[in-house]
Design a protein around this nucleic acid. Sequence first.
DNA 1: CACACAAGGTACTCTGGGAT
DNA 2: ATCCCAGAGTACCTTGTGTG
Length: 235
Amino acid sequence: MDPVLPALEVQALFDVLADTVFFIKDREGRYTHCNHTLMRRLGRKRRDDVIGRSATEVFPPPLGATYHSQDRRVLRGETISDQLEVHLYPNRRPGWCLTLKRPLLVHGRISGLIGVSRDLGRPDSRHAAYGQLEKVMAHMQAHLDRNLRIPALAELAGVSVAQLERQFRHVFQVTPQQHLIKLRIELAMRLLHGEDSIASIGQQCGFSDQSAFARQFKATVGMTPREYRNLKSCL
DNA sequence: CACACAAGGTACTCTGGGAT
DNA sequence: ATCCCAGAGTACCTTGTGTG
């Protein structure tokens, strides 16, 4: 029989990873385990301030509701892997993470969920393809407001689409599409501090319309552009 | 009523993982 | 490294909702 690692041991292991959030939740979406990184980012001093609570109780309203509905999907059996997300830290500084959440199965039945969220690290500048990819990055940055296509970016780098994706993952830990979304959402978050209408910001960031912008923004940041604007005006 | 924004439906395109 | 296909994502359009 395979050895079973008790959840408390796993939690202790994840306590030493400062750039990774770790948690286990029960069938109702309440935290049963969490590591120090999650506690710190929630601005809590003690683990007991988190354990037994759901996302809606420990995150600000729009974020908590989004995470809670994500939890419900996972508790129905869905797995969320490598989802690019923005996390707002206690000082409201945004940080980019890749999140994995999956159902926790005990004797074949879903008894909760387990998740990790790791910070996006620095790009690997020693990778052989880094120079070529920098050209792609510069092009993305300069033409964020245009309809950028992955095949065109691959052509720019002089590689196939599949090669571009593989190399991009190696160097930046995300796909070209995810990187493009990251640049666009970062720009949108900056513009939302100004007075431009949400539709106009979506356009400036290269989204085809306000609908596509709001959908992508919510999927990435966890709240709609308007909620984000209201949140930062409360700070 | 006009406007701004959110959300849903559908057709089409793109992505990513498995097979080779 | 390359190919292929299922599923995810996107564009476009429509409808719903809240506010002044």
